[in-house]
Simulated scan of single mutants.
Amino acid sequence: MEKLAIKLCMTKDIGVHGNLFGGNMLAWLDEAAATWACSVCKNPNMVTAKIDEMVFERPVKNGDQVIIYGDVKRVGKSSLTVYIEARAKDFYSGNEETVCSTIFIFVRIDSNGKSIPIDDSVREKYAISN
C-alpha cells in the first residue's frame, strides 16, 4: 500500500464523546483518496462516485497521528476502485493500528460532468490489480 497522507487529530476535530468525529475522518479519507486518484489517473477530473461501508475499529484521540494508505484494486473504463485504510500511529513505539478502512470508487469526468474513459496507460500499469 502507498502512504497518501498524514493527519494530526486536534481539539477542533473531536466530537462530543472525546473521539475524532467520524465525519472528519471521512473527509480526510475522501480528500486523500481523491487527490491520489487524480495522480494515479494523471487527470484532475476525478470525482467520488461511491464509498462502501466503513467500520470504525478503534477511536482516535486528541493528539493521535493518523496515516492514510491506499491501494488500487481495479481500473475500469472510466472508474478507479481503491482500498483506503487509516491507521493511528504511536509516536513512541512507531506501531500502527488500523482505525478504519473502506473502498472508494472514483469516476473520471469531462468539463460537463459526464464520465469519460481513463487512459489506457493507467489501465495497463495497474492490470495486475484487476
Results as ranks from 00 to 15, higher is better:
M1G: 15
K3P: 00
L4W: 05
A5G: 00
A5N: 07
I6F: 05
C9G: 05
C9Q: 01
M10R: 14
T11M: 13
K12A: 09
K12H: 04
G15P: 01
V16G: 04
V16W: 12
V16Q: 11
H17N: 14
H17A: 10
G18K: 07
F21N: 14
G22C: 01
G23T: 03
N24T: 11
M25E: 06
M25N: 03
M25H: 06
L26T: 09
L26R: 08
A27E: 12
W28H: 05
L29Q: 02
L29M: 11
D30G: 07
E31Y: 12
E31P: 00
E31W: 06
A33P: 08
A34V: 09
T35N: 11
T35Y: 07
T35C: 14
T35M: 11
W36C: 09
W36P: 02
A37V: 06
S39D: 12
S39P: 05
V40R: 07
N43S: 15
P44C: 12
P44E: 08
N45G: 00
M46A: 06
M46W: 05
V47Q: 00
T48Q: 05
E53G: 00
F56D: 10
R58Y: 05
R58E: 15
V60T: 14
V60K: 07
N62E: 14
N62S: 11
G63V: 02
D64S: 01
Q65L: 11
V66Q: 05
I68F: 00
Y69F: 15
G70A: 09
G70V: 04
D71C: 05
D71N: 13
D71Q: 15
V72R: 04
R74F: 12
G76M: 04
K77I: 02
S78E: 07
T81A: 00
T81L: 05
T81N: 07
V82P: 00
Y83W: 13
E85T: 09
A86E: 02
A86N: 04
A86W: 06
R87V: 01
A88N: 10
D90M: 09
D90A: 08
F91S: 15
G94S: 05
G94E: 06
G94V: 07
E96C: 07
E97S: 13
E97T: 13
E97C: 09
T98F: 08
V99R: 09
C100Y: 01
C100K: 08
C100L: 04
I103R: 11
F104S: 02
F104K: 00
I105Q: 13
F106Q: 03
V107A: 03
R108E: 10
I109S: 08
D110H: 03
S111A: 15
K114Y: 09
I116C: 10
P117V: 00
P117K: 08
I118C: 03
D119L: 13
D119I: 02
D119R: 14
S121I: 11
V122L: 08
V122E: 13
E124K: 15
E124M: 03
E124S: 10
K125M: 14
K125S: 13
K125Y: 15
Y126I: 02
A127T: 06
I128D: 15
N130F: 11
